[in-house]
Design a protein around this nucleic acid. Structure first.
Lengths: 188, 188, 188, 188
DNA sequence: AATGAATGAGTATTCATTCAT
DNA sequence: GATGAATGAATACTCATTCAT
């Protein structure tokens, strides 16, 4: 019954992701969004009751995907696991960039957005715990140099994710390259 | 005696830099700016004729400083020069972040902004040329590994700049740490 | 310095009072308001930051006036005092009607509105205390019939205020008439 | 077998009455209405073609009921008749309150609404005639004081209807109480 | 030169009404 | 019939920019 949907919730969130990455949270407007979908601006309110909810839902969806992939990694060998983890983060590098905008969402307006952001926060903690666990085990295995503080090693590892892939190397290869750079450095 | 002097152009640009870094280009408003200065919002128009010009001028000023520092580096030893260059970029990491917003400036409105952005573009090229020169010489000196494409080495080098300095290590030390990570990698 | 105001805050609140009485809270729009003032709709935001604040401020202003008048009444003779009080309420019958709309103001949006409504609430209590005091003394003086519950006497007294003055009798006379009706009833 | 029956027209009008009394005409929305009924918002248009018609029909229905009751009153003794009339109006006090909103209905949109409002207007006149008739006879019988203009006596009588029944006294008793207040006044 | 005030254009959001299944 | 979905028009509010003192 009822008319056919002009766009699905999933299409809406996909486009939101794209546009927030492109324009940042403040540059993201519902007018912009509707112009990239096949329906009217007001139709968006059939799915979400305000801008905050849309972006929060979008972030949550990305986080869920990353969480699933990250927690599926075999952690037997910490160094291998870190490499795989880096690949996950590289594949979903949007997460890192999106989450940088999470602080701008005005939670006061929308409890649904607040709930989503809370979920994201918890998931973030889960991921940090996994990362710390792997780094500690890697260090115990004498796999990591000791002359550089662990937080710096981690920070650089994390920052690698956002390195622009200018040569458009396929994700798996790109992940491997970055990991090797991180592990072995640039010196011959 | 004239009216009391409100803020200076330099104060205006300093605050603009701070606020653009904090809120991004779209989150940066003249209202916000004037609230962080000692005069009225309309006084801003004594110095610049629109928002675009302000941000462009701000970017240009940062670029000029970086350019001076970068071109003053002694390039005798390419590896040393790269380390010093990284330090410059780390000290002025605002440049990298600001320039990420340059594309959002609507140049159609303002020729002054257009001119500034053009200058920035040229300077950017100049810096890229310097970087390529140093990298090539480093590679010729067999200083850099060959199994990773040069653009990747450069991309990772550049991306290091934005690594968040969570432990608040002083800039010179922070620069050295990052350079060592880049050179030597994380493996013990 | 600066331009001349196109309308004053007082004009704004006067017109708000008139329009809220005419159209009710839900029928009161800022567009409507601006159409009855000499400036643009957006100029209203120089004075108040949202619709809620405007209406709350308007109500508070009316309440302050009523409070001053009511507390200035000489309470030596309770019956006389009640008559004077009725006159006050009749002169400012807007208060009663406005306050009927107070519950519709969404306080969540605006702390200024919340503060004003709180003030109104306290003032309301003060007025009720005064009214109860006078009624009790009138009853002790055997001035009021005992076969009708006091709350009903009070309720009817209060409700008189809103009786439409169709013959446009001047306020003091109108107040006296109503008081006599209340006191003596309609029977000859 | 057809589709499941959603709400009936009568349910629709009952709920409309309740909601208009609760929220006023401007605060009454079809969305709100449908949320308080068992069907979809669009189903409302099976019964009425716009919002104006709904409210007008609702008012008419209440008016019809009041008219029937009022015209059934035995007018032998005008004073008794007035008491019974007051009871009718108190029982259906919604009428008075609803009719206060009638002026807000935009008749231009809907001829059906216009027709209903016209009916209401005529009925209103009928009731006023009845009221005037009874008042005049009561006055001729020397039942009403002469020192107060008849319109004021009528106005106060009518206004009694809206006195809030805070003690929740049953309608017949409440009507009697109000009538006695009106007749005899508050003085002991 | 400095600024308080005015404003128009732009975005967010709501809701009556219409479509199409 | 009944309804889920689409939508355009209307209002709330913000902010860059212009005026006038």
């Amino acid at each position: 019954m009822g008319r056919k949907q002009s766009f699905t919730e999933s299409e809406l969130l996909d486009m939101t992701k794209k546009l927030v990455l492109e324009h940042g949270y403040d540059g993201f407007h519902l007018k912009l969004l509707s112009e990239h979908l096949s329906g009217a601006r007001s139709t968006i309110y059939q799915y979400f009751s305000n801008k905050e909810e849309i972006v929060a839902a979008c972030m949550k969806r990305v986080m869920v995907k990353v969480l699933e992939k990250a927690l599926a990694i075999d952690e037997t060998d910490p160094m291998d696991a870190l490499e795989q983890l880096l690949l996950v983060y590289v594949e979903e590098s949007a997460l890192h960039q999106l989450l940088g905008q999470a602080g701008k969402i005005n939670v006061a307006n929308s409890s649904a957005a607040a709930k989503d952001l809370e979920f994201i926060d918890e998931a973030h903690t889960t991921l940090k715990v996994q990362l710390s666990r792997l780094f500690e085990r890697a260090q115990q295995n004498k796999g990591l140099r000791q002359d550089i503080p662990l937080p710096v090693l981690i920070g650089v590892f994390f920052n690698l994710i956002d390195t622009p892939n200018m040569m458009n190397i396929p994700a798996p290869d790109w992940g491997k390259l970055l990991f090797q750079m991180w592990i072995g450095g640039a010196r011959s």
